[in-house]
């Protein structure tokens, strides 16, 4: 029995801080970090499988308007859509959605096929 912490306290005085001086020192994302979902509209076939798989109902597909819409503020980055995509057009990118004053959606339009 005794006070065991003295050594630790002395070490604290002499060692560098364990925390990072964010934002001066930027955060490094890992390759696995789940930040936001992106869609490669050239490969997308607007099949709506991702819409059905999404547990947060953050996705919408409009076949008439040829659009794919995501509400990044509803998205929970579970990757269910990315895994379900039959054409691998969806991908998870490490950057987080930026903070905003109001919630907004992001709509991507599928370009018209050249030979149509």
């Amino acid at each position: 029995m005794g006070f065991q912490i003295t050594g630790m306290a002395l070490k604290n005085l002499l060692s560098r801080p364990a925390t990072k001086l964010y934002p001066v020192e930027p955060q490094v994302y890992t390759t696995q970090t789940r930040g936001h979902v992106d869609n490669n509209m050239d490969a997308c076939i607007l099949c709506s499988i991702c819409v059905r798989k999404c547990p947060a109902t953050a996705l919408a597909v409009d076949k008439e308007a040829r659009t794919w819409t995501i509400n990044p503020f509803s998205c929970v980055q579970c990757m269910a859509c990315v895994r379900a995509c039959p054409r691998d057009s969806l991908s998870m990118l490490p950057e987080y959605t930026a903070v905003a004053q109001s919630m907004s959606t992001r709509t991507l339009v599928k370009p018209e096929d050249e030979d149509e």
Partner: peptide, 21 residues
């Protein structure tokens, strides 16, 4: 956790039938 699953708290690694990563 972040290195292996991409999340620090919500790992999202387990699903019905096995693991997904």
């Amino acid at each position: 956790f972040e290195q292996t699953t991409g999340g620090r708290v919500i790992l999202n690694a387990c699903n019905v039938g096995g693991v997904n990563r």
